[in-house]
């Protein structure tokens, strides 16, 4: 297992070691006794069996001992888990969003990132949201996981105690690119965290439309090079004539800015022939009209 990097790791690992220890003891012990019996009481050595129908004392012993042991296991499991539900008041609250197949994190001051950066030895709480289907935020190094349920209000918190960069994985199957839904959490010193937080987002000469597409994970399903992923590629799509299905009726349309805007706000209204319905959620309220205009402008030039 990887080295633990949060305050929970100790409790989780302790419960694992205790249960694994008891388990290995019984597994090895019972298997050894079983193999010994098979040799010792083989019919060559022991041609006449003795019929023993049972032994009440033994039955009681091997009911009581497992009962005590499982209660001990339960206790350590519970103790390791209990602090995970007790969020300290001074925790930094970050909104974690999931959608097919991307995590994003929104900091209290509005900063939005794809990967998480947190200060070492501070309490951090993540409110978990999903835009489409079930996802699960899993940080193996922190021994922590909680499902991200659309419409739900799950949360988790942690106190990272070791600087470094750790994987974040999606643990709940969420469709085609589930295994590619990755992110990371970087644990840094408090000073580095403050610097990072206040640093302006790196200004690039990227087209503003492309920036919006990246930020909303549009490009995981819509390629820019003409290849088919989940939805139609953006390349050369503007001005093209396509067959779409509207309420079960096929019709021909020309792809213009109105169609693009409608596809963002109500993606299941007109489905291009050959593509699946229901896989994209509405981005109404997520993407502004100005941003849609940027997207249209960018796609127009994607020949």
């Amino acid at each position: 297992m990887r080295t633990g990097a949060s305050t929970f790791a100790e409790g989780v690992d302790l419960s694992l070691y205790i249960i694994a220890g008891i388990s290995v003891f019984f597994l090895v012990g019972i298997t050894a006794v079983m193999i010994y019996f098979v040799f010792r009481y083989n019919k060559k050595r022991n041609p006449k069996a003795t019929n023993i129908e049972g032994n009440n004392t033994l039955e009681v012993v091997w009911t009581v001992i497992p009962t005590i042991l499982v209660m001990i296991m339960f206790y350590y499991g519970w103790m390791g888990y209990k602090p995970m539900r007790e969020v300290p008041d001074d925790a930094i609250v970050i909104e974690a969003h999931a959608q097919m197949w991307k995590f994003s994190f929104q900091y209290p001051d509005g900063k939005i990132t794809d990967t998480l950066v947190v200060p070492v030895n501070r309490h951090v709480k993540l409110n978990l949201h999903s835009r489409d289907v079930l996802h699960s935020l899993f940080i193996p190094a922190f021994r922590l996981k909680e499902d991200m349920v659309p419409g739900g209000n799950n949360y988790l918190w942690f106190n990272p105690n070791l600087e470094g960069r750790y994987d974040i994985l999606c643990a709940e199957y969420c469709g085609q690119l589930h295994s590619f839904m990755l992110s990371s959490v970087t644990v840094v010193s408090d000073a580095d965290y403050q610097n990072w937080l206040t640093s302006a987002p790196s200004t690039s000469d990227e087209h503003p439309g492309l920036a919006v597409l990246k930020q909303n994970a549009c490009l995981t399903c819509h390629s820019q090079d003409g290849s088919k992923i989940i939805g139609p590629s953006f390349k050369g799509i503007y001005g093209k004539t396509e067959m779409v299905e509207t309420d079960g009726v096929e019709r021909e349309i020309v792809i213009d800015s109105a169609y693009i805007a409608r596809s963002i706000k109500d993606p299941n209204a007109d489905i291009v022939k050959g593509y699946m319905k229901g896989l994209m959620v509405s981005y109404e309220g997520v993407v502004t009209d100005e941003q849609i205009a940027d997207i249209v402008d960018y796609i127009k030039n994607l020949k």
């Binding site: 249960i19 499991g77 995970m84 899993f138 922590l144």
Partner: peptide
Amino acid sequence: VLGALAADIHLHD
């Protein structure tokens, strides 16, 4: 192992 809460949080799914 999976029945224990703390261990399951890590091992679930």
